[in-house]
Amino acid sequence: MDISTLKRNQFLRSVELKRDNVESFSKYPYCLPVIKNLTSLEFHPKVTFIVGENGTGKSTILEAVATAYGFNPEGGTINFNFASMDTHSELYNNIKLIKGVKKPENGFFLRAESFYNLATNIDELDREVPGLISSYGGKSLHNQSHGESFFSVLMNRFGSKGLYILDEPEAALSPARQMAMISRIHELVKERSQFIIATHSPIIMAYPDSIIYEIKDDIKVREYEETEHYQLMKSFINNTDKMIDILIDDED
């Protein structure tokens, strides 16, 4: 399938900031450099990565996109409506999503920071609708380790022709599971799914058929080897002793 056909068929094509609706760019989250300078952001038809240091706004953008699309701000499918704490920003009210002509048949917003709340809600729903837990692997997510439960959702709940928005999935996954995640992403991409992922992981962002946006003072497209995360990890692995000497200065 050529790239033009892929772009026509992708579920989410781009996001635009409705700048005229923003009362002040001095208030959060609009004061973040990446939001202040944002006009539009195009998504890859297969996988889009958003990377950057803590506090740069990548999770803020991802949360706004997911919420504007209709996902619960704390995670889950379109149908999840639980809320343990209303902490998401109002950014979703001031963005416009440019959607494709086709709607996804599946979808999930998976975020590490509120995964415990999501797992609790799934258990509660399973008591109301017995058997629901089978779509998550047949075992309560609370009865598995954080990494096992996170990976169980990825393997069992994600399906073909889906839109999947993931916020820092590596927080729950070992390096080996991150590599396995690449394989799972590829399986689902071949089944016409689309991913938008905020991550710090040089392993996960190595998936080749993708675009990488790196946030610093603004947001720019980067090649994998150009990203700061890749360069730091490569320097550390290749020069471990030297890096440790720099980080642990015992001259005192």
Rank of each mutant, 00 (worst) to 15 (best):
M1Y: 05
I3K: 13
L6F: 04
N9L: 15
Q10L: 03
F11V: 00
L12V: 06
R13S: 15
S14Q: 06
R19H: 06
V22D: 03
E23T: 05
S24M: 09
P29E: 13
L32K: 09
K36T: 07
F43N: 02
F49P: 08
G55A: 08
G55V: 10
K58S: 11
A64D: 06
Y69Q: 05
Y69M: 03
G70V: 10
N72C: 15
E74P: 01
D86M: 08
L91D: 02
I95Q: 06
I98E: 14
I98R: 10
K102A: 10
G107W: 08
A112S: 15
A112E: 07
N121P: 00
D123Y: 12
E124P: 00
E124Y: 15
L125R: 13
R127I: 03
G131Q: 08
G131Y: 08
I133H: 08
I133M: 14
S135G: 01
G138D: 11
G138P: 09
H142P: 00
N143S: 13
H146M: 13
S149V: 08
S152Q: 07
N156L: 05
R157T: 10
F158E: 05
F158N: 02
Y164F: 15
E168A: 06
A171P: 00
A171I: 07
R177P: 00
R177V: 02
R177N: 14
M179L: 13
M179R: 14
E187T: 13
Q194V: 04
I197A: 02
T199G: 04
P202C: 10
I203H: 03
I204C: 09
I204Q: 00
M205R: 02
Y207G: 11
I211L: 09
I211A: 04
Y213W: 11
Y213G: 03
I215K: 02
D218Q: 10
I219T: 07
V221N: 06
T227V: 04
N238G: 14
I246Y: 15
